[in-house]
Design a protein around this nucleic acid. Structure first.
Lengths: 209, 209
DNA sequence: GATTGATGTTGACATTGTCTACATTCTCGA
DNA sequence: TCGAGAATGTAGACAATGTCAACATCAATC
C-alpha cells in the first residue's frame, strides 16, 4: 500500500498518480476476493487516501470495476498477440484458444469481472473499446477475417465456454495445470468432428456452480 | 407480495410457507435487477415479514442465492428433458443445445447467478446436487454416456460459451429472437468441421462486456 | 501574488448483512 | 386439556458500505 505518496523526488502535491494506484490496489483485491467483495473504501484505505478520494477519479464503484475490466481486456489482447506470434501459422487457432483459457485460469476473478455481467460495456465506452480491441485480436488470429463465419463463432464460443466451465470447476482440472489445460484445449478445439479417439479425457463433473 | 399470509382456511401460525414465498420474491427481484443487487432485507419486505425472518430459513444471503441457483439448475434440467423428448433422435444434440441457450436468454440473471461464480456449489451441497442432475441430463442427451469424451465436452463448452456470449451481447442477436438463436445454434453446433459454407452468419461485435 | 480549478478530506446519511435478545405460535406428550 | 419446548417471527443494535455536500489544500495561471 501507499504506492508512491510522493514520487520522483518532486514533492508531489496531493498523492501523484492516485488513479493508477487505486487501480493497482483494486486489482490485487479483486484477484484475492472477487468482484463482489471489492469495496471502494477498502481500495482507498490500501492506497492510503480518504474514503472519498476515489470519487475524484471514478464516478462510482461501477466505473472502477469497468476500468479494471478494461485493463483485463487489454491484458487478454496482449496474451493472444503473444501466443499467436510465437506459434507456427498452422497452430495459431489452438495457440490462441489455449492462451484464452490460460488467461482465465491465471486470473479467474478478473475474467469473471470481464464476463460476469457485473459491468456492461454499454455503460462504459472505455470498457467497450478495450473489449472490441481484444475481440479484433481474437478474430484476426483465428484465421478468419472480420467477417468470420460460424466456424469462428464456434471456436470462440468453445474456448469461452471451456474457460467458464473450468473456472467454475464444472470440468475437473487442477487449477493452474497448464499442461492439462493445453491438452484439453487441443483435443476440444481440434476434436468435435474427429470423434472420441483421444483417450484419458476428463468428463463432466458434479461439482456445482 | 404478502403471498399467502394465511393459507388454506387454516389460520396459519406465523406466515405459512415463508420459505417459498421468500424464494418467489427473490426470484422476481433477481430477474429484474440481477444477482448483485439482490438484498435480503428487500426480499423480506416484499414477502411482508421483518428484516430478520429470512434467517429462519436461510443461513445467510449466500444461502438464499444458492437456493435460487439450485432452482435454476432444476429448471434447466426440465428444459433439457422437454426439448430432447420432443426431438427426433438425430436432432437431439441440437435440440438440447438450443434449449440450453434459450434458457440463458429467457432468464439471463438466473443464468448469471448459476454460472457467474457468485455462489459456489462447493459451499452448498443442495446446489451441487441440482447442478449435477442438470449436467447428467445434458450428458445423457448429447448422445454420449457418462464417460463422455472430448466431443461431449466440446459440445457442452460450445453451447455454454455461446450462451454467455449472447447474454453479454458480444454476439449481436436480438434478445429473445428464438429463431435466430436456433439457427445460430444449429449452425455453430453442427458446423465447426464443416467450414463456413453457411451464409448470413453474425460476426463478433464490439459491444463490450 | 491573488484566483481558480483540480484534488483530497471530513462529516453525514440511508442501506445492508448479521448478531443477540425477546415474543408469539405450533406441536406433542402427560 | 394443557403446558413445556421447539419453530418461527420481531425488535434493536452494530459495523461496513456507497454516495452526497461542504470544506481544505495545492498547483498553475493571469
Amino acid at each position: 500500500m501507499s504506492t508512491s505518496i510522493r514520487r520522483r523526488g518532486k514533492r508531489a502535491y496531493h498523492h501523484a498518480d492516485l488513479r493508477p494506484a487505486l487501480l493497482a490496489a483494486a486489482r490485487r483485491m479483486l484477484e484475492r476476493d472477487g468482484p463482489a467483495a471489492l469495496s471502494l473504501r477498502e481500495v482507498a484505505r490500501r492506497a492510503g487516501v480518504s474514503h472519498n478520494a476515489p470519487y475524484r477519479h471514478f464516478a462510482d464503484r461501477a466505473a472502477l470495476l469497468a476500468a479494471l475490466a478494461a485493463e483485463g481486456f487489454a491484458a487478454l489482447a496482449d496474451r493472444l498477440r503473444d501466443a499467436t506470434a510465437r506459434a507456427p501459422p498452422a497452430g495459431r487457432l489452438g495457440a490462441s484458444g489455449a492462451a484464452y483459457v490460460r488467461f482465465a485460469l491465471d486470473e479467474p476473478n478478473l475474467f469473471r469481472l470481464m464476463f460476469g455481467g457485473l459491468v456492461r460495456g454499454r455503460d462504459h465506452p472505455e470498457l467497450a473499446g478495450a473489449a472490441a480491441r481484444a475481440y479484433a485480436q481474437l478474430a484476426g488470429e483465428t484465421g478468419a477475417g472480420p467477417d468470420a463465419g460460424p466456424r469462428t463463432v464456434a471456436a470462440w464460443a468453445t474456448v469461452h465456454g471451456l474457460a467458464h466451465l473450468l473456472l467454475d470447476e464444472q470440468i475437473p482440472l487442477a487449477r493452474g495445470d497448464r499442461a492439462a489445460a493445453d491438452r484439453l484445449i487441443e483435443r476440444v478445439l481440434g476434436g468435435p468432428a474427429r470423434g472420441a479417439e483421444a483417450a484419458e479425457q476428463p468428463k463432466p463433473g458434479a461439482d456445482g456452480a
